[in-house]
Simulated scan of single mutants.
Amino acid sequence: MTQTNRPALAILVSDIRVLAEREQGIVRIRMPEDDFCRRLCESGSQFGLRVFVLPVASAAPRPSGADGYVLEDGQWRQTRCPLPDLIYDRAFCSGRVEREAKQLLLEQLAGLRPNVQLGSPLPDKLTMHRMLQTDERLKPLLAPTVHYRSGVQLAALMKRCPHGLFLKPAAGFQGRGTLWLRPSGEGWQADGRQLTNRPVSQTFANFDAMSAWTDRFVRSTRYIVQPYLQLTGEDGNAFDLRSLLQKDGLGRWTMTGIAVRVGAPGSITANLHGGGAASPALKQLTLRFGEARARYLLTQVQQSCLRAAAILEQQIGRIGELGADFGIDRKGRLWLLELNGKPGRQSFEHDEGLSRQAMLKPLAYARYLCKRSLPLHLSLSPPLPNAANPEQSSTVHPNP
């Protein structure tokens, strides 16, 4: 199969950085998730795919193609790319304008040539929480969650939450914009990260001052509020589990890996973008809880991920991969903290084999979608996995 008649897979990204090396007169381009995009483009031919990058802001699709980037001799080169048969959405939009621009581009591409996205976009955190709450096996893993309206509501919520409140953007990612509000001595304390990911820490003499400051911090961004869960290790640093569930070359869900993430000192989350570090889950959990308890927790994580994926697919359609964050409180209770439809791979860089799987499974799944005999836009409802049976396989047959 020649390069021109291979199915075309477009990686959708947001902003592109142009790095000018003035001394040599060379202009170098860096993609968002540059290493990931490189690996996908380099490996596409192994899966019978032509892979390139389409930036949301400058793709300018027309019947003849769209403006994108291909990888040649280790460098990104801008060129006219074919209209894609498949789209892998890795565009992280920072606001309404960028989200609308991406939606417009997707509509333009679909109008020019039918295409298939590797996964449907996930709804906001509150909507997902409500979807998962309908399942009796997942409901105990979910913290109470409400929509943030104003600082006025915080007083009533704080009375029911002795360790404070945790606020995060309803459509946030990478731990940005998170906030922990709590009493401290004779006053109040707020710690977290701004939407730009810079650390923030404020003290207040009274609750009203903290409430007013929180309103200014949130501004027009949609936020959710949860009880603050004590998800820290013995060293006091934030501690959680990141799991990566991906569809393989046969359209089945497979658990690629589970890693422990430990946050940087002083950080309220364990996100790697906030300075955290990742390591193998079984080893770390065994050190903390013993091997038997560690294996039980990992089985719970695996089965909960499969069940959450099945529920979401029944509601919103095809999903190609799902990142899930779990916390373990000081009593050993497991909590499902967050689901992410655009999961990162950094948590598995400590294991070369897992890292390679995490990178390449989207290509195997894209090839599968191309080879399906059913029309690509159709999907079947998956069975829900039996979370009570620890012997169940980690592979299920979901919405392809």
Rank of each mutant, 00 (worst) to 15 (best):
residue 5 N to Q: 14
residue 12 L to A: 06
residue 21 E to C: 09
residue 29 I to Y: 13
residue 29 I to G: 00
residue 31 M to Y: 01
residue 43 S to P: 05
residue 56 V to I: 10
residue 57 A to V: 00
residue 58 S to P: 00
residue 60 A to D: 15
residue 66 A to V: 05
residue 71 L to W: 02
residue 77 R to V: 15
residue 77 R to D: 00
residue 80 R to L: 15
residue 84 P to H: 08
residue 87 I to F: 02
residue 88 Y to E: 03
residue 91 A to Q: 01
residue 102 K to F: 01
residue 106 L to I: 08
residue 109 L to K: 07
residue 117 Q to N: 09
residue 121 P to K: 02
residue 123 P to D: 10
residue 130 R to A: 12
residue 137 R to N: 09
residue 139 K to G: 00
residue 143 A to H: 01
residue 157 L to R: 05
residue 163 H to D: 14
residue 167 L to N: 11
residue 175 G to M: 07
residue 181 L to T: 00
residue 185 G to L: 10
residue 196 T to N: 15
residue 203 T to A: 15
residue 207 F to Q: 14
residue 207 F to T: 00
residue 235 D to Y: 03
residue 239 F to P: 00
residue 241 L to E: 03
residue 243 S to R: 02
residue 243 S to N: 02
residue 243 S to F: 10
residue 248 D to P: 02
residue 248 D to N: 15
residue 253 W to N: 08
residue 256 T to E: 06
residue 260 V to S: 02
residue 263 G to F: 14
residue 273 H to A: 14
residue 279 S to E: 11
residue 290 G to N: 10
residue 293 R to V: 08
residue 294 A to E: 12
residue 296 Y to T: 12
residue 320 G to N: 07
residue 323 G to L: 08
residue 330 R to W: 09
residue 331 K to Y: 08
residue 339 L to Y: 07
residue 340 N to G: 09
residue 343 P to L: 07
residue 343 P to T: 06
residue 349 E to W: 05
residue 353 G to F: 03
residue 370 C to E: 15
residue 375 P to W: 10
residue 379 S to H: 13
residue 381 S to T: 13
residue 389 N to E: 13
residue 398 P to Y: 05
residue 399 N to T: 12
